[in-house]
């Protein structure tokens, strides 16, 4: 992976950028079969995520809601990472991300900008923020796989 992804200043800018200009930040599906509402039990993050799948591939991601910097930017980054990936690839990426934030072994090459959250576990109360939207994507993908 490139060296600049190890520079805290750059990682900060990634989070800032995705918080101020979140990608895929709208819900277009009217059919809530593809949507999932994620409301944190421990804090005020409240996010709805959605995906659209065609031929086993994620062709659309979206999210909206009221959430903190970490929840918003992590969901935004993941919405880009899993877009145009197969369901299996997306699961792999997300599980790899979840391993990173829970301080397990992970493959950083797979995570691109999401590497910005590699130190989030230092603030244990924010791990939930860094995973709330992503857990939502994972649940939707697993639902698709189970079909």
């Amino acid at each position: 992976m490139s060296q600049y992804l190890k520079d805290p200043m750059f990682l900060r800018q990634i989070i800032m950028d995705h918080y101020q200009y979140p990608r895929n930040h709208e819900l277009v599906n009217e059919n809530d079969e593809f949507q999932l509402h994620m409301a944190s039990e421990s804090c005020i993050d409240d996010i709805t995520v959605e995906i659209k799948v065609e031929d086993n591939k994620i062709v659309h991601t979206g999210f909206d809601g009221v959430a903190c910097t970490i929840a918003t930017s992590s969901t935004s980054i993941m919405s880009e990472l899993i877009l145009n990936k197969s369901l299996d690839e997306a699961v792999l990426i997300i599980n790899n991300y979840l391993d990173m934030v829970s301080e397990k072994e992970y493959d950083e090459d797979m995570l691109e900008e999401a590497i910005a959250f590699s130190t989030v576990s230092k603030q244990a109360n924010r791990i939930k923020c860094a995973t709330i939207g992503i857990d939502g994507f994972l649940k939707l993908i697993e639902k698709e796989i189970a079909k």
């Binding site: 805290p8 900060r12 800032m16 918080y19 101020q20 910097t69 959250f117 130190t119 230092k122 924010r126």
Partner: peptide, 10 residues
């Protein structure tokens, strides 16, 4: 500020 709130992660 938003910046300082993010800084505490690093």
């Amino acid at each position: 500020t938003v910046e300082n709130c993010i800084n505490i992660l690093f």
